[in-house]
């Protein structure tokens, strides 16, 4: 195991240990490819990562155009769960992504995503 992949595993551990989190991924923001993942069975990592990266790009451009700056955290809410995303700081080009149950503690996941992003960056 390389130091980088061990670091990625540690970063994902921070997120998946939160109750209600079904999985976490590191995704390349540029092309939507999965860099590392810890997902529960049944979650289609590569497809979700591609769509998450595409959404992140659109959102970043829209937010910059609106004058609110680049996104620090975003949260796609759905009837039966949520996708939570933090881009790594400093324009590193990686998204830290969590898939969660609907009743997850969003504030806690956000904190762990931000911590994981620091680790990855």
């Amino acid at each position: 195991m390389t130091a980088a992949s061990a670091g990625y595993g540690k970063a994902l551990d921070l997120i998946t240990r939160v109750r209600g989190v079904r999985g976490a991924m590191l995704v390349s923001a540029e092309d939507g490819i999965v860099v590392a993942e810890q997902l529960m069975e049944g979650i289609k990592g590569p497809a979700v990562s591609a769509l998450a990266a595409s959404l992140a790009t659109r959102l970043r451009r829209a937010m910059e155009a609106a004058g609110v700056g680049a996104s620090l955290f975003w949260h796609l809410q759905a009837e039966q769960g949520a996708l939570l995303v933090v881009p790594t700081p400093g324009g590193g080009g990686t998204l830290v992504v969590a898939v969660a149950e609907p009743d997850v503690n969003v504030g806690l996941v956000r904190l762990e995503l931000l911590r994981a992003a620091e680790v990855v960056a």
Binding site: G42, W74, H75, L76, A78, E79
Partner: peptide, 13 residues
């Protein structure tokens, strides 16, 4: 993701 319909997207800038 099998999460039903999306209801909102909140983003912090």
């Amino acid at each position: 993701l099998g999460l039903g319909k999306w209801t909102g997207l909140a983003a912090e800038g």
